[in-house]
């Protein structure tokens, strides 16, 4: 757990034959509500895969199933082509999945280094915090991701802008041997310049060989960074596009009117 990789270089993997993560026919039901119905979805290393859909399409449920917060009812999750059971956040972290939630989960009163190492602090043999080591690694990780707007890694997170905070949350996620980074609405609360910073960072993650899954409403952002787009509608995957071969209009149509297979209990909604 405590072993870290330098987030730079050394991750070159060819956008692979085998997807790093694959969902096959995953279904999830909450009582009478069918939240996900036979969803198929895959993410490859070195690519940015976007998951889009309207409110209530099942994006958050999908993330939580991958994170192991919700157990899936049917279907299977494959990691590196092998079926795995993810029964909790610890399992997903052990596989190398890191999720950056919308609220970022940073402690405002702690500085950048303290936040990035929160819960996984390095200690010296005498059990004291090894601040020197942590500070150096943080600086290296941020430098490897070209996050240059942060003046000092010893300033408290409270003093950072929204884009800087997002960058810290992402850097925190990739510092721990992660292979798949899931970003939940990373640009939702950001201004133009800060959105730019974060999108550049997302591209760099993929260039460094990580698999990136981007969950967003914002088609403009998605067309800028994503390689593939999967559209969810009412809990089903209704369309799949390569960004280079499609238009925003096509994607919008899929989001609002993609063809659904019939699901018991959802007929009225399909009619509407």
């Amino acid at each position: 757990m405590t072993e870290t990789t330098d987030a730079g270089g050394s991750r070159e993997r060819s956008p692979g034959a085998v997807p790093i993560l694959e969902l096959r026919g995953v279904s999830k039901r909450f009582g009478a509500v069918q939240a996900l119905h036979e969803v198929n979805f895959d993410v490859r290393a070195g690519e940015v895969t976007a998951l889009v859909g309207d409110n209530g399409a099942g994006k958050s449920v999908t993330i939580k199933c991958i994170a192991g917060i919700y157990p899936i009812d049917e279907g299977e999750i494959l990691w590196d082509g092998r079926p795995v059971t993810i029964s909790g956040p610890k399992d997903s972290a052990a596989l190398g999945i890191e999720i950056v939630y919308q609220d970022l989960a940073l402690a405002d009163n702690l500085d950048v280094v303290q936040n990035m190492y929160l819960g996984r602090e390095e200690v010296t043999p005498l059990r004291a915090l090894d601040e020197t080591k942590m500070e150096r690694r943080c600086s290296e990780t941020l430098a490897s991701l070209s996050v240059t707007t942060i003046r000092s890694v010893r300033q408290t997170v409270a003093g950072l802008s929204g884009g800087q905070r997002q960058s810290i949350a992402v850097a925190k996620a990739v510092m721990w041997n992660s292979r798949l980074v899931i970003l939940d609405e990373p640009t939702a609360a950001l201004g133009v310049a800060q959105t730019r910073q974060v999108l550049d960072l997302v591209k760099r993650l993929a260039e460094q060989g990580l698999a990136v899954m981007l969950v967003s409403h914002n088609l403009h952002d998605i067309f800028e960074v994503a390689d593939n787009i999967t559209v969810l509608r009412l809990g089903q995957d209704v369309a799949r596009f390569k960004t280079s071969e499609t238009t925003q209009r096509e994607v919008v149509e899929a989001i609002t009117a993609g063809t659904l297979s019939t699901v018991p209990g959802q007929e009225e909604e399909v009619q509407a």
Binding site: A105, D108, Q114, G119
Partner: peptide
Amino acid sequence: RHVYAVGGNAEAARRAGI
């Protein structure tokens, strides 16, 4: 460090495995 984290943002601390 964890005392400060819990006081600053208990949810962040919990998600960090504290």
